[in-house]
Amino acid sequence: MFFRRMRGMFSNDLAIDLGTANTLIYARNQGIVLNEPSVVAIRQDRAGGPKSVAAVGEEAKMMLGRTPQSITAIRPLKDGVIADFTVTEKMLQYFIHKVHESRLIRPSPRVLICVPCGSTQVERRAIKESAAGAGAREVYLIEEPMAAAIGAGLPVDEARGSMVIDIGGGTSEVGVISLNGIVYSNSVRIGGDRFDEAIINYVRRNYGTLIGEATAERIKHTIGSAFPGAEVLEMEVKGRNLAEGIPRSFTLNSNEILEALQDPLAGIIAAVRTALEQTPPELGSDVAERGIVLTGGGALLRDVDRLIEDETGLPVVVADDPLTCVARGGGKALEMLDGRGLELVSTD
């Protein structure tokens, strides 16, 4: 304990957005210092032999779906929570090391981690313990809608309702915030991963062709769209034809992807509608007057704000740099931690 405190003097406080798709780290007084995919490649040379970490982050993501037998590329988080405890711990350990330049002393920072608001006590505890196992001296948790709202620059401390939608890799969170507290929050296990899955299923159904997750993600980034736009984008894709068993190439357009994404998008819209129904009327009118703020990687899907605007009839704005909103908000909460910020975070 004493040594941890000693090492803590040489460590930066960190806010970690431990996401299903990407992990971002905000270091106090430094800003975002790390943004890498939450992927770990594990090497095991023989069955029953010792396992070792082959690669983490960007490098490991390149291996996803392209590994030999001795290497497994794992995404240790599923639906915003830990699916593989040990691997998550290893990954956090690696990332915490990576953001500390001095490697003479093992870092032992105070860490604030963002958790989905729908996560259970067990899931929160798993996150806390894996951060502690990765070397954190103290672990604080903050709910993602709160962090996203702070990161987007919403006036969370005012007596005004602000609604934030955070579409992440594994979950989408809807939260209504007023006076530093969450008035209503809801989390649905729909996010970027479900979009990819929907694209894979669509292509298999309509083209009889199998594509991988990485390809599906590339399709989503390039031509994915949530609202019918004026222009139609096209993209050449290669996949394995199921009937022939041979890789074939074909062309997809943005309208097809829009059709593919209907199901998961409808899930998100339903969550937003429920949130608006459940919000107290005073706060609801604040939201209607100023609008809803969209954060998370899902906000980068083309025209997703227009879809929500169209479905709800409320103004929707996309926050600046939506991918890093949660981590930046966590960082701001971390800076407030020594003052009044304790009401924003919890330790259990």
């Binding site: 800003g31 790390l34 690696y94 930046r328």
Partner: peptide, 15 residues
């Protein structure tokens, strides 16, 4: 401007 990620250079995994 929102802070651009200042992602650090490669640290070998065997750190």
């Amino acid at each position: 401007l929102p802070a651009r990620p200042r992602v650090q250079g490669g640290v070998p995994p065997e750190h």
